[in-house]
Amino acid sequence: MTTVANGVNVQALLDAREALKGAPEAAQFVWRASSKWQDGVHSTTRVKEFFGLGQEQEHKSEAVFDADHPEVFAAQDNGITPIEYLLIGLASCLTAGVASVAQNRGIQLRSVEAALEGKHDIRGILGVDSDVRNGFNDIKVTFTIDADASRQDIEALVAQSQKRSAVFDALTNPTDVTVEVA
């Protein structure tokens, strides 16, 4: 197990798990993003600060994300569409899970690639047909993984990463969302 180097500090995660068992309040995190309208359907969203372990925290540097719509939507395409950000979240969350679980199970990864497809019927957002939903109809993730493990073990990694994924949960289960005007 010591020879496996996927770059995940699993011991720190296991220690955190133990420490938080007796301190649920420290486990309460708040993730934040703030966005600003630019022009048209173009907006810029910045992410830097968050709250966790009982205090304010921040990333090493601020991250800036532009979202827009493509030219086929008669927009400027200054950035990817908002719904594509969900695919980024899902891909990166599941990949992080695969790496962490592999490290914990002593499986050396050589490469982990994922192709994502979110099927989206835009008649929903355009109001063409009220029976069509606004969001994805379904999402398909296909992992290609090269690792020192059997196919069964690799499938188990992917299954476990879904089981412990924040974004997979957020996409597959309803979440209470409040939107208000300040």
């Binding site: 379904d138 499938e155 992917v158 299954a159 476990q160 879904q162 089981k163 997979f168 949960d169 996409l171 597959t172 289960n173």
Partner: peptide, 11 residues
Amino acid sequence: FSGGLRNVFSL
């Protein structure tokens, strides 16, 4: 209902 049915099958 959760959309994670396939994964509970896989697990």
